[in-house]
């Protein structure tokens, strides 16, 4: 049942990403050229919604559907955050997509993004192979 819920949440997200234009290379260009509020409005209101949700979950002590406590794991900073982020940003501007939108684009009939996802997997593989040699 839980597994199906996760698949459904993914389907929901794929539809929203598509209808929000977040999967559009053009929209990402518009964002990096500061020519529309669209993407900033989306990211800003998404973050506010997430913040409010987390505030309420903590404040009211809301548990998961199976009654577990919700404990957040905080990511810890390391020296890769800035250079890794910069490399990711370069890839985001080139493909016009981050990992979620890449999947949504395949669904939307852009099979070329199968190549993009495969390349992204290869990029992650390359990181895993040289991780020890990179500053962290």
């Amino acid at each position: 049942m839980k597994q199906i819920s996760f698949l459904l949440v993914g389907i929901y997200f794929g539809i929203v990403l598509s209808k929000a234009d977040v999967i559009s290379w053009f929209r990402i260009q518009e964002m990096f050229r500061f020519q529309s509020f669209h993407m900033y409005g989306i990211i800003g209101s998404a973050v506010l919604t997430g913040m409010l949700s987390i505030f309420l979950i903590k404040k009211l002590g809301i548990k998961t559907t199976s009654g577990k406590n919700i404990d957040l794991v905080y990511k810890k900073y390391h020296k890769g955050y800035l250079p890794g982020g910069i490399l990711f940003g370069c890839g985001w501007a080139l493909t016009g997509a981050c990992p979620g939108p890449m999947m949504a684009l395949i669904g939307n009939g852009f099979p070329i993004f199968i190549v993009a996802v495969f390349s992204a997997i290869l990029g992650t593989f390359a990181y895993g192979m040289m991780k020890e040699k990179l500053p962290h």
Partner: peptide
């Protein structure tokens, strides 16, 4: 597509996350 995708995969892991 290929270099862009590679950078998304490499950068997101080195930077510990994506969007």
């Amino acid at each position: 597509v290929v270099m862009g995708g590679f950078l998304v995969g490499f950068g997101s892991r080195y930077g510990d996350g994506c969007t």
